[in-house]
Design a protein around this nucleic acid. Sequence first.
DNA 1: TCAGTTTATTAGTGTAAACTAACTGTCGGT
DNA 2: ACCGACAGTTAGTTTACACTAATAAACTGA
Lengths: 239, 239
Amino acid sequence: MSALTRDANPPLTRSVEDYLKVIYHLSSQGGFATTSDIASRLEVAPPSVSGMVKRLSDTGLIEHVPYRGVQLTAQGRREALRMIRRHRILELFLTQQLGYDWDGVHAEAERLEHAVSDVLIERMASALGQPQYDPHGDPIPTAAGEIEEAELMPLSDAPVGAKLELRQVGTQDAARLRYLAEQGLTPGVLIVVSDRQPFNGPTAVSLVPSGDPRIVGRDLAQLLWCREVPVEDHGRPAA
Amino acid sequence: MSALTRDANPPLTRSVEDYLKVIYHLSSQGGFATTSDIASRLEVAPPSVSGMVKRLSDTGLIEHVPYRGVQLTAQGRREALRMIRRHRILELFLTQQLGYDWDGVHAEAERLEHAVSDVLIERMASALGQPQYDPHGDPIPTAAGEIEEAELMPLSDAPVGAKLELRQVGTQDAARLRYLAEQGLTPGVLIVVSDRQPFNGPTAVSLVPSGDPRIVGRDLAQLLWCREVPVEDHGRPAA
DNA sequence: TCAGTTTATTAGTGTAAACTAACTGTCGGT
DNA sequence: ACCGACAGTTAGTTTACACTAATAAACTGA
């Protein structure tokens, strides 16, 4: 009686919600999310991920190919998008209504997204006028679970003058990744394309908001997948 | 090495925070909080309480007298008041800024109080103008951990016309408690004293907001400890 | 006073989620 | 074609917190 009559749809735990979110982000470009990528994003040991992956695929939230990685099922994707909606609305609310700034807001939203009710999220969304973008410029999924697909382009193709958010780095090579991190070119960073040399030349960019200049060679620029950011202000507080 | 070098002040868990809060409420009138009272408030089984009580007294948050009950230590009281501050500020914020009503707000605050940072709470407090009372009229502890001691008086002593919140029922007698619950006279309820007969006669009250009348005999009225409620509106939304 | 009831505690179990240590699979390079 | 490096998995342990069943202490009433 116990196993069969047990609650068919138990609410997701905090951890499950976190796993689904990072799997969504890691596999959003179409591939598999690997165990060690998930582990490093969540700052847990790889065996913890293996254990959770087992549970999540048992409950139908992900698809697991051993030694390859995982992808979300339709149901897992729905839950992931629900969390992302919560997170982004929270970030926007905290910056617009409570004077949070850009950097501090993430950690707060990260904790709150597991605790707020759907009712509260929708009230915040109303108070904010059903916003479409969070303070980082990321699109907010609808309550129905739809999200504007950010069309990514490699930095090498971006027009001069464009404001971009770096979203994805298309390599696993440690040396390249280390170099990019040193340059401050990591996912989430905002940049403006200031110049490009002809004949497959390098791209010059400046970081936002610091304004620091960077020169990115053609090969690297092809690995930096970016999203064009709308130029209007998204709720950065007056201070 | 492991036991000794282990984190000396680990953050409190959700459960611990909940236990401290109910122990605070149950022992606020000076007595002990008993195992079964704690269990029924938290809706857990008594053995779960025994287990937690052991852990809490090991970590110095409570004082336990076996088969008698528990009381908070100074440290436990500090933590309990911190949670109560969070809870009450959240309730006020949700009612004043997001259109929550009186009854719905408690459950939401109950979940959020474990997730919000101190920074967020203080920002909410600022946005609300450093309020002193929550939407139920309960005093909000200061960030420093001080709380206005609600001076309780028995209903039998309350002046006619006073608006009161019933805070504590001074008996454990099941028959009396059952009767009072039937009459809707339970802690948290608001009443207005409408009349009192002379020579130790009964007190007539009406319930707020329903307006239902009740007659309370002298003996019972002496058991009903009440707090006078300031008459101004505390943020009940326009709807 | 002493039996019966109520309340509290102990003992043992289960689940979620982390960990370390040990083992296995995959893939790139010689 | 194999062999080592590294990624992934299995096994077993730990901590927090709940549960049920069994036992012990305290209270109550005839």
